[in-house]
């Protein structure tokens, strides 16, 4: 009765999800892996001209934009993630220390999470406009000449900076939210005890808040890295599907969709799959690294 198994009944409940998962999740994992090893795969009929072990991988690595894409992806991840994690941690701590207007601030900081990256990306493009954007105007107050950030002809480094500002801005909301709820779940007793021991505020932050929050910081950092590896929509929102001037902001995922956008070109789908596999292994590496670190480092 209670401890009995209800195999049949359980699978009936699971059936709708299961069918969808098999078709749209499990099968694709296998299939995408297989496409990587197929020569000139035809996506509509499934024909292919034979097998290749490394042909498609070589093709993607040899792609004109592969190394720039790797470079961009890594820069985006290693700049925007630490910046947004640190900023949002501080904002969360400050937010947690006030009572009045806490809800209002919380709501404001959360806005970027719910809004459309394409729409806001366009607004950022306007702000970073060379001729009449707000950002160049602010720089001009410091005597800096107008810079072309986003328009065709923009230099890579400037486009990258503008993109990083947008991505960091976009990533704050979720992190502030999670950190704040983490802070609110920390037992007040720790803080009371620290006060009785007359610990200074910065000491409390370093010795109590950060260690107690460390599992959450680790979790957020790792998921943000994975998210940053997959950056695409924000770039399209701000710079268009060309991924910046002459594709200079191309990322790995950008390569996937660029190739998938021309599925009739021979080998294109296999190229997309290979790029996805590269992304998959980057993510996997990070996850394994994270598991290794969190075993050693997370404070409790």
């Amino acid at each position: 009765m209670l401890e009995e198994r209800h195999d049949f009944k359980a699978w009936i409940y699971l059936l709708p999800a299961l069918i969808l998962l098999i078709v749209f999740t499990f099968y694709p994992i296998v299939n995408t892996f297989m496409i990587v090893f197929m020569v000139d795969y035809d996506f509509l009929y499934g024909d292919y001209a034979g097998w290749t072990l490394t042909g498609n991988i070589e093709a993607v690595i040899g792609h004109r934009q592969f190394w720039p894409a790797i470079r961009n992806t890594i820069i985006i991840a290693f700049v925007s993630v630490p910046m947004s994690v640190i900023i949002s941690l501080f904002i969360a701590v400050w937010l947690n220390s006030i009572k009045k207007l806490q809800g209002t601030f919380q709501t404001i900081f959360f806005l970027p999470y719910v809004t459309n990256a394409i729409a806001v990306g366009l607004a950022f493009a306007v702000i970073f406009n060379r001729d009449y954007g707000l950002f160049n105007y602010l720089l001009s107050l410091f005597g800096i000449d107008p810079i072309n950030w986003v328009a065709p002809g923009a230099e890579w480094r400037f486009s990258m900076i503008a993109l990083l500002v947008f991505i960091t801005w976009n990533g704050l909301a979720f992190k502030i939210m999670v950190f704040l709820s983490g802070l609110q779940s920390i037992d007040k007793q720790y803080y009371d005890a620290a006060r009785i021991d007359s610990a200074s505020r910065s000491r409390v932050f370093r010795k109590i808040t950060v260690p107690l929050l460390s599992p959450m910081i680790a979790f957020i950092t790792i998921t943000s890295f994975i998210g940053a590896f997959k950056e695409y929509t924000a770039i399209v929102g701000m710079f268009g599907e060309q991924m910046g001037h002459r594709g200079q902001l191309m990322t790995i995922v950008g390569l996937v969709y660029e190739a998938l956008g021309e599925p009739y070109t021979a080998g294109s789908v296999s190229l997309a799959a290979s790029a996805a596999i590269v992304l998959f292994f980057m993510t996997l590496l990070l996850t394994v690294f994270n598991m290794w670190v969190s075993k050693k480092r997370v404070h409790y």
Partner: peptide, 13 residues
């Protein structure tokens, strides 16, 4: 697993 892995085959499907 990154969503792009699914997207490719789902597009084919």
């Amino acid at each position: 697993i990154p969503g792009e892995m699914f997207v490719i085959t789902n597009f084919i499907t």
